[in-house]
Design a protein around this nucleic acid. Structure first.
Lengths: 337, 337
DNA sequence: GTAGAGAAGGAAACCGGTTACAATTTTGAA
DNA sequence: TTCAAAATTGTAACCGGTTTCCTTCTCTAC
């Protein structure tokens, strides 16, 4: 026996399907008696209307798309957690895509979300879309999608869309400044290459802080890779092997922090005795075991929550002015206080 | 301008919408000329048919539901990663639910997935459904859902469904045995309460190994909480404060490991000098920094992949015999070799 | 007792696809 | 050349809901 339809309920309750629909949606007017009868049949049979049929006829969906580059990274897990908190409250379901930092998968995911399958999208771009042609195509896709989109975490310059970002510039600035105050003058950085906006922002913060305190940036202390642990590990090995190496190092996300620590550990060295490290993003485990690492903390869960709220508000008020939320970061760690 | 429909394409190509549908689905027969024409219009206009309308008329969806207790836990992140690898290949989209280990949310999620919104479900039960009435209700819901369901990770005894589980019994047995071989006789365990099947299996493995080696289990070394870090932390404090405390301890998931380590660290103690710890689930970060912790490793990504494959095979062959996959675990760590 | 307004609820169109069926055209063999 | 079979394509019904429109029924006021 396949699943129930509104017709089955209507027949059993001795009414037309229009009436059943009215009862379910509290629209039109239905007498108390029939309402009761219909409701009891619905309850008896545990009827749930097909969301698809409903969406098709109303033209509104209750699903939102969630597009992120990766999921096996606690940072995005936390974002998702925050998003779920809000969507749950609002009866929205989540359609999930990961793009593996791949531009093609990114566009494919957006494309799949087209055509009213979702009523909104939470979008973390897989890449920066630096190439004007690709950027233009992205914009076109986003426009054709025809539902609100909120950009998360990576401010690639889609000024037409709502967005939630972290203040990476100041996060990095403050961390660098604090290191300087603590007496460090040779400060290294393991960043991603500067074609990524995230990397640029962090680099800016880093350089500005140095210059602000009269320290001339030393290119030999700056390493540019990607956001992956393996690459960071290799760069860290080089950095650590320098004769006149830095006394403190900044990394650019949790993965690179881990890569760095691995290289450090392989040399039989440790923080903070051999070097000071300030990671970007808290790595919870290390905290609990008392590993003396400093962090620039970014509250990913808040970001998720905020993004979901923004999306919902945009769905309600399509014409409200654009909102861009910039979340503060926080310095954590004994050495930075 | 709202999104395109098949009619728009049909009109522009000068054919009926039936023909457009045929072209898109490679069904029926269409002359080469018209096919070309239709395809070019589709390409021009970047038309993607509404998945909802399609599902409604065909009765088959291309979405699968993914229900897990939590997502801000790398274990489930890894599972999801594995699942995506397979669903991506097969053009399936994922509808995502977390249940926060809450029975009600669990059933609600399943309920929402009813009615052909999905063509299959990957399901990690939030709770064990030990109460017969609740268990019966769960079975009823699962049957009414009317699409294949594959159970992951928690073998709560749904023998009618395909499932993928870890061999927690042997994982724990082997770890315990190895500890004994290494000379430990007082071995502690921080487990969840035994109303959870996961906890029972692990406890069985633990006890069997002890007895097999002639060690009488000592209840004062066994602590039962839940799968959360906070509770484990409290239990660990008690355990560590015992005068005649164990020389080795087993934990029951990554969270409890962390809770334990926190308590240990607060006492100013560390592995392996003060105590030996065997965690369940690898905690990657600790590895990379060379933290000398042993693990029972469970390959969550494999589990996700396997579960997705099982689901797809079940969708293709609804009547094939039931399959239950039990994945091996692996002991990792210097002290256990 | 009756007109008129408002409530109740059914019939049918619609959402955007798929598909059974029918009509038309093309093809090919006799 | 002719006619049956095959290929092509259109028409209309259908999926399971929502919603407009219209009819019928009640109730109130005069």
């Amino acid at each position: 026996m396949s699943s129930l339809t509104i017709m089955d309920i209507a027949k059993e309750a001795g009414v037309s399907k229009a009436t059943v629909s009215r009862v379910m949606n509290h629209t039109g007017s239905v007498s108390e008696k029939t309402r009761e009868r219909v409701l009891s049949v619905i309850r008896d049979r545990q009827f749930t209307p097909s969301a698809m049929a409903r969406n098709l006829s109303t033209g509104v969906s209750t699903a939102i798309g969630f597009v992120v580059p990766e999921i096996d990274n606690p940072f995005f897990g936390e974002i998702l957690r925050g998003v779920m908190e809000i969507t749950d409250e609002n009866g929205l379901t989540l359609i999930f895509y990961t793009t593996d930092d791949d531009a093609e998968k990114d566009r494919k995911a957006l494309h799949l979300l087209e055509n009213n399958q979702v009523c909104g999208i939470l979008y973390t771009p897989a890449v920066d879309y630096g190439d004007p042609a690709e950027r233009k195509e992205l914009r076109k896709i986003l426009k054709e999608i025809n539902v609100p989109v909120v950009v998360m975490d990576r401010n690639i310059g889609l000024e037409e869309l709502d967005g939630v970002y972290f203040d990476d510039y100041h996060g990095m600035y403050d961390a660098t400044e604090q290191l300087i105050r603590n007496g460090h003058t040779r400060i290294g950085i393991i960043n991603a290459t500067l074609d990524r906006v995230l990397a640029r922002e962090r680099q800016r913060g880093f350089l500005d802080a140095l210059r602000q305190h009269g320290i001339e940036p030393d290119e030999s202390l700056m390493y540019f890779g990607n956001f992956r642990a393996t690459k960071a590990y290799e760069l860290a090995k080089e950095l650590l092997a320098q004769k006149n190496r830095p006394t403190a190092v900044l990394t650019c996300n949790n993965r690179t922090t881990i890569g760095f620590l691995r290289a450090l550990h392989e040399r039989g060295e440790a923080v903070p005795d051999d070097i000071t490290v300030v990671g970007l993003d808290r790595i919870e485990v290390l905290d609990t075991i008392g590993y003396p690492l400093c962090f620039i903390e970014r509250d990913a869960r808040s970001m998720g929550r905020k993004a979901a709220k923004l999306l919902i508000s945009r769905m309600k008020f399509p014409d409200r002015p654009r909102i861009e939320v910039v979340l503060d970061t926080k310095l954590i760690g004994q050495e930075l206080s």
